[in-house]
Computed example of a mutant assay.
Amino acid sequence: MRWLPYGTDAVLVECESLSEMSAVRTTVIAARLPDVLEVVPGARTVLVVARPGSTALSEAREAVEAADLANPPGADPRAVELAVRYDGEDLQLVAETAGISADEVVELHTGAEYTVAFTGFAPGFAYLTGLPEPLRQSRLDTPRTKVPAGSVGLAGEFTGVYPRSSPGGWRLLGHTETVLFDSRAERPALLAPGDRVRFRRTR
């Protein structure tokens, strides 16, 4: 793990794994340091932003270095359920790659509980961990120029939902009508790091 200055009032923590990143994020949040203004996770990084002139960055580092990152502090995550119509363009491709039927793909995808590890790519796009091993597949060789909003896909160790129409190379399993991002709402993004997510099949 490396702690790198990020301007005068922030530090970028470079982690060795996704799980270490999640442990650092939850540890800093659990410390409830009043002068930590923002904690922004990435795939292998955590950005900690502090109030100018405070000692929050050193306090955050002390909290992380004193913590057992193999057993990070617990949290009270929000639970979100997304209803999905599993009719995606790549559902059969995912099934063939996994060596199972399309129905088994859906059973695996809906049977797991996912955690929002971090957000990025587009406003409201959440990278969800917890994808069953048979569904961990590569991105498409040729990305699509337009993926419809609400498309549910997977790539590598992640699954997620496209919050708006955009280019994308994830394998598409289906579609949800749930709005993932609304700039006019009090909470624009439906999903935030630490949230727990389940998918439910709908016809």
Rank of each mutant, 00 (worst) to 15 (best):
R196F: 09
A117E: 06
P34Q: 03
S166L: 02
E14A: 12
P163K: 06
G156K: 00
V94Y: 00
P134M: 06
L37D: 12
L57I: 05
E38D: 15
R136P: 09
R184K: 15
G42P: 02
G7T: 08
V49A: 13
L173F: 00
P123R: 07
S19H: 13
E65Q: 14
D68E: 11
V36R: 02
L69S: 04
S54Q: 10
T119M: 09
S183D: 15
T119D: 07
P134N: 01
G168R: 01
A23W: 08
A63Q: 03
L91D: 01
E62S: 15
R78W: 11
V24G: 04
A30R: 05
L154Y: 09
V24W: 06
T159Q: 05
A95C: 05
P132A: 08
A23F: 04
A149H: 10
E177I: 11
A43D: 14
L108K: 10
R196D: 09
G156R: 01
A63K: 04
G130C: 02
D141G: 15
P34E: 04
D90N: 06
G124N: 03
T145M: 10
A149I: 07
E59Y: 11
A30H: 10
P52I: 04
W3T: 13
A155I: 09
W170N: 09
A95T: 07
V116K: 05
V64C: 05
D35E: 12
R78L: 13
E157C: 13
Y127W: 07
R78S: 12
P41I: 00
S58D: 15
G99C: 12
L37I: 12
A60I: 06
F118S: 02
A189H: 08
T142C: 10
T97K: 13
L190F: 08
G168T: 06
V36G: 03
P5V: 04
G53W: 08
S58E: 15
A56E: 02
F199T: 08
P73H: 04
A56K: 00
E186R: 11
P41E: 03
F125C: 03
A63E: 06
P52S: 02
Y86K: 01
P134R: 05
L82T: 04
I100G: 05
E62A: 15
T26W: 15
A50F: 01
A83W: 11
M1F: 13
A63R: 01
P167A: 02
G174E: 04
G169R: 01
